[in-house]
Design a binder for these strands. Structure first.
Lengths: 354, 354
DNA sequence: TCCAAGTATGAAACCGTTTACATTGCGAGC
DNA sequence: GCTCGCAATGTAAACGGTTTCATACTTGGA
């Protein structure tokens, strides 16, 4: 593996000149530059990243910490981050699936000195210490933060208002007994969606019944289980709001297995609008969020924060979470559960994907 | 930001001692070690990663290059890699969505010197140059490689035999006119699955009809479009093999929209067995692959290769792709399309997820 | 009493870059 | 013919660690 010294020796110049050639400094004779490049390619020389980071104090790398990697939502967030950082010629150092604050701290330490900034989704309190620690060295951008941290930018979805709109929609359709399948405990998104659910009920003068709030963990299987539980509840709910689409899929399967028709017997609304939602039977009414866009926006904020240096303010951005009405809530269908618009031959309505 | 020198000065020792304390060398007086750690935590000292990499020539980082990040399959692969590398205390440097060989090369260069090994899914020929180049410096593990590269380990799914088994199953059920929806051009997985499809037909003495091979790109929308096309084909196919589950979902929606029943009118088989497949209506017969396991296995191979150093052989591993029969192919259902086993109250059969 | 072996620590070289500063050579202006 | 300024390049000091080798101090056995 050849170093800058090898190139310098063979090309008959000093290492400073080689460095200048590779960094596009103008004050080098074109002829010399040509020779250096020639030798470099011959020797397959490529600057050592670690050495560069050491002197320049820039790594051209962004740290990304997510609580979990399971499911389409997170993968879309990463996709957005990846795409946008490539644009700015940044690499991404990924770390996820931390079950507790201790692990987050360790992961954070391991990243220190290898990243120019950290994009972090920290749905639980335990991660705050890590955020504070990292923040003293490099800018941090938070995704859907539970608590805003002084000096950190953040991007979040309007989880609360999205959920509230979804449930309000159900109420508008005449539903009064509405159940909810929650996300994992301690997850901010999940909590905000639950809060939106409750608020929509009280807004309408209804009394939130805790027996109507079922546990879940964002996976299909818990949606399925909740479906069985819902059918035993008295009064039996006429509508269900699932905290994400994955659980809605499980729920639909459970209802079908029990011979119930959606939306005729029970209306269903999900959250996230993952790719398949439009293709379900019936097509799922859900709250659309642009997970990929969340990632992109985070990178943009990061670029701004890095530019600003320590003076970087704490910009807060909110991304919309908009209700997308399809058939599963009963609003645009007579209750057959069949794809109305598609019957005409067109593709089902779906949100635009960038 | 404090350095090793700051700690040494405050603790009244040399930098060598501080380094020894942090690297758990035994030959340091416990009392001294305690003082050093005390000072270090006070000063919030943490070793600089770049400097460490420079001297030790180890980065404790694995590069991961994927062609794409879209869809559950890739996200599961990353999840597997992430989990297993955490186990070995490695970080992962992620890069994806390269549209051509040039971009792959650039990404590869950017990683050089920052990684101890590279896990790469290189579905097209253009990436081979990058593989060769990187391989001269650090071990490379290939995922589902098109061509085996001398000196590289690889892990792959039995795409070919999985597809062949799926189609053979359809033939066994009496289907003769079977269509296939392909994956993106240039994608090895897609090509292997197509090859398996053709082989199953010829195995059964059937003549593969090119008009039955429809284009697709692994996304739901192309499955939907293919559905419309299939209904116009003469002879009309009685079964369809989709190269992945996402397209199968789109196909199911298209068939439903056209009033066809699955599996009674048309049987459908997918590939991948993503989380929702068991919960579809009807539950999707598909070929199960453990994408997460693929990632894990790749990391294990990498650890072996790094251990072995330059002497590392070229281990080849094949992971099974097994047919999981559910209702959509008509084999375990009278054709109602309803969830048989779940009607009894149990959760639908699904592959085990680790 | 002396030496060998061991333990704890320090000094300094090195890893591969970037960059501030020094040096050289040369043409222009006086 | 000098000096000045500039272009092109070289020298050497960082950057923040690890590690080899040397050194000082104990300790124990002959």
């Amino acid at each position: 593996m050849s170093t800058i010294r090898d190139v310098a020796r063979v090309a008959g110049v000093s290492i400073a000149t080689v460095s200048r050639v590779f960094n596009n400094h103008t004050l080098v004779n074109p002829e010399t530059a040509g020779r250096v490049l020639e030798v470099a390619s011959q020797l397959e020389y490529w600057p050592n990243g670690a050495a560069q980071s050491l002197t320049t104090r820039r790594t051209h790398t962004l740290g990304v910490m997510l609580p979990e990697l399971f499911g389409e939502f997170y993968s879309e967030v990463i996709r957005g981050i990846d795409r946008q950082s490539r644009l700015h010629e940044y690499q991404i150092l990924l770390s996820s699936s931390h079950s507790n604050g201790e692990e987050v701290l360790i992961a954070g330490r391991a990243m220190l000195g290898r990243i120019d900034g950290l994009i972090m989704m920290a749905p639980d309190e335990a991660s705050i210490e890590t955020v504070e620690r990292v923040r003293r060295r490099v800018p941090v951008v938070l995704l859907n933060p539970r608590i805003e941290v002084e000096g950190c930018c953040s991007v979040a979805f309007e989880n609360f208002s999205g959920a509230r709109a979804a449930v309000a929609h159900l109420i508008g359709l005449g539903h009064r007994d509405i159940a909810m399948i929650c996300g994992p405990e301690g997850n901010v998104d999940a909590e905000e969606r639950l809060r939106g659910f409750r608020r929509a009920l009280t807004d309408a003068g209804l009394n939130p019944d805790e027996a109507m709030v079922l546990p879940g963990d964002f996976r299909e299987s818990t949606g399925y289980e909740a479906g069985a539980a819902i059918l035993c509840r008295r009064p039996r709910p006429t509508a269900v709001f699932a905290a994400n689409d994955g659980m809605a899929v499980g729920l639909l399967a459970a209802l079908r297995a029990a011979g119930r028709r959606v939306p005729r017997d029970i209306a269903v609304v999900g959250f996230d609008d993952i790719a398949i939602s439009a293709y379900l039977n019936p097509p799922l009414t859900t709250v659309s969020v642009d997970a990929c866009g969340l990632g992109q926006r985070a990178v943009d904020l990061m670029m701004g924060a890095m530019e600003a240096g320590a003076a970087g303010g704490s910009l807060r951005q909110l991304l919309p979470a908009l209700l997308t009405v399809r058939a599963s809530c009963g609003a645009d269908s007579a209750g057959s559960g069949f794809l109305e618009e598609a019957a005409g031959g067109a593709e089902p309505a779906r949100r635009g994907r960038k």
